[in-house]
Design a protein around this nucleic acid. Sequence first.
DNA 1: AAGAGCGTCAACCGCAGGCGA
DNA 2: ATCGCCTGCGGTTGACGCTCT
Length: 249
Amino acid sequence: MGTMGRSESGLKKGPWTPEEDEKLINYIQKHGHGSWRALPKLAGLNRCGKSCRLRWTNYLRPDIKRGKFSQDEEQTILNLHSILGNKWSAIATHLPGRTDNEIKNFWNTHLKKRLIQMGFDPMTHRPRTDIFSSLPHLLALKDLIENPEQAIRIQNEAARLNNYLTYILQPPPLPPPDLASLTFPPPLQESFIQDSVAFGHMPDLMTTSCGRGQPDGSWNTNTGDASSYEGAQTWSELQLDDPYFHEIA
DNA sequence: AAGAGCGTCAACCGCAGGCGA
DNA sequence: ATCGCCTGCGGTTGACGCTCT
């Protein structure tokens, strides 16, 4: 198209320049944003009000926290997503300095992928049980079976998968939270968000995130003793962060 | 060295809801 | 009741940078 970043109305689109940012910041610092629709003209910007609002709320606002999400923040997002679903703005109200857009991006590019790798349905936060989602795991297992040198590993894996399947076939330790009794706002108690037993069925990224656990990337010390997995009730006990789960995903 | 493929994230689009006239 | 305006939200896109081959 020949509009080169301009809309039908001649307004600029696309990435913001430092000069535009400066104009927007200066204007809002002096006058507040007021009507977003009126702002661009008043601030001398050739943008639509919507673009200005987005730029301000997602990037220029002084209280924005930038940089990597902490483990606590990750866990909070995961917990809240399990009750709220894709209500990014609601989730953002519990993460000071984070925007809904940032959280949404972080979810889509990191957390969702990680849950899928771990065999969870990212929408329900429960283990996936459909055959197609298990196919990669099954194919990987077939590979292992065809390789006699890995017999011991297979034996261990069988025990792991047995536990995994046992878990899948069990009801969660606690029923899902009673959504009707949860009102938003007022905000949830932070301790509830991060520690509540209501999230007991969910993976704990504090203990299952990539690269944590065995610092040398080796198998868990339980490796080789299949019986040690018997009776595993929680995700952290199941060691779904084992390199193998990433390997076969 | 180069280009294909992939991941990330800022920004856009369309829609829904709130509100005043 | 309904119309139009405005804002906020969630899904999606596309540019850019990095990695892999």
